[in-house]
């Protein structure tokens, strides 16, 4: 079987299109590259959607944490503590079994037991909590002069937030937020190992890499392929976030612009 044929059969296997059966013997490099790459679709799906939705909630929670209202503040603090203080792995398991019992009581909730929805919600809340902490830190370090200038111009409420507080917060938080995005993409590989079933073997990149390693008993091929895909993905994330970073810093003189620096932070 030629490699183009393999690509045609398996390129969208992770979504359920193409060949139904996974290869069972005589595994070729082409099959491994194609299937693991096909699985990356899920990693990108989870990462991009959770990041976009999480960004909005994170801004709200960061504002809540900095709010003068004690109820809002406590709620935000608990939300952040709950999701940052416990392992994502356990959060997935708990959420999956919670959704299962909800489904038992009200069939309305049945979509949540699929990875596409249930895991996405967990990742969304998780990244919102981590990002909120980053945004909150940035909010605390907004230069006093900036907000005083806003007051002097007579800005208040929404206009003050929209024109001064928010852009400065983003600018300060962006390097750390880039790291968060990278590790969120890494965290998406946990989904199919933590309760959520890969129905009809529609899984993510790690799911297929693990499949090949189990079948061939040779971890030295599928995992490096997976690593290669993830390094590429990481480079793309850094590139895109770097563009945004340039946009956020465009008003500053050259030497004051904050460079993106990558800091370690592993599993949640």
């Amino acid at each position: 079987m030629s490699c183009t044929q393999t690509i045609a059969d398996y390129a969208f296997r992770s979504l359920g299109y193409g060949e139904r059966l996974l290869p069972r013997s005589d595994f070729t490099l082409c099959q491994q590259f194609t299937l693991i790459g096909s699985g990356m679709i899920w990693n990108i799906y989870f990462g991009v959607l959770a990041l976009l939705a999480g960004f909005v909630l994170a801004t709200a929670v960061a504002m809540g944490k900095a709010s003068l209202n004690p109820v809002l503040r406590k709620l935000s603090e608990w939300f952040v503590f709950l999701f940052r203080g416990s392992p994502l792995f356990i959060q997935f398991f708990f959420a999956y079994f919670l959704f299962l019992s909800l489904k038992g009581a009200y069939p309305f909730f049945s979509p949540l037991t699929s990875a596409a929805w249930g895991a996405l919600i967990v990742l969304f809340l998780n990244t919102a909590a981590y990002s909120a902490e980053i945004f909150h830190g940035a909010l605390q370090s907004i230069p006093k002069g900036d907000t005083e200038a806003a007051d002097a111009y007579g800005l208040s409420g929404w206009a003050r937030f929209r024109r001064v507080v928010w852009p400065t917060m983003l600018r300060l938080a962006w390097p750390a937020y880039t790291n968060e995005a990278i590790f969120l993409f890494h965290a998406t590989t946990l989904v199919f190992f933590a309760g959520f079933p890969a129905r009809q073997q529609k899984g993510d990149a790690l799911y297929y890499a693990n499949y090949f390693a189990d079948k061939t008993f040779n971890p030295f091929i599928p995992y490096p392929i997976l690593a290669g895909y993830f390094i590429l993905l990481t480079l793309v994330v850094i590139g895109v976030f770097g563009l945004v970073n340039r946009h956020l810093n465009r008003h500053l003189p050259q030497e004051e612009r904050r460079k993106l620096r990558l800091r370690p932070q592993a599993i949640r």
Binding site: F193, L226, A227, I231
Partner: peptide, 21 residues
């Protein structure tokens, strides 16, 4: 650099077989 660039869980799954072998 390598360990930081790749999802850790992939390393876990990889090393357990690779070390054993």
């Amino acid at each position: 650099a390598v360990v930081r660039g790749v999802p850790d869980i992939a390393f876990f799954l990889f090393f357990v077989i690779a070390l054993d072998q």
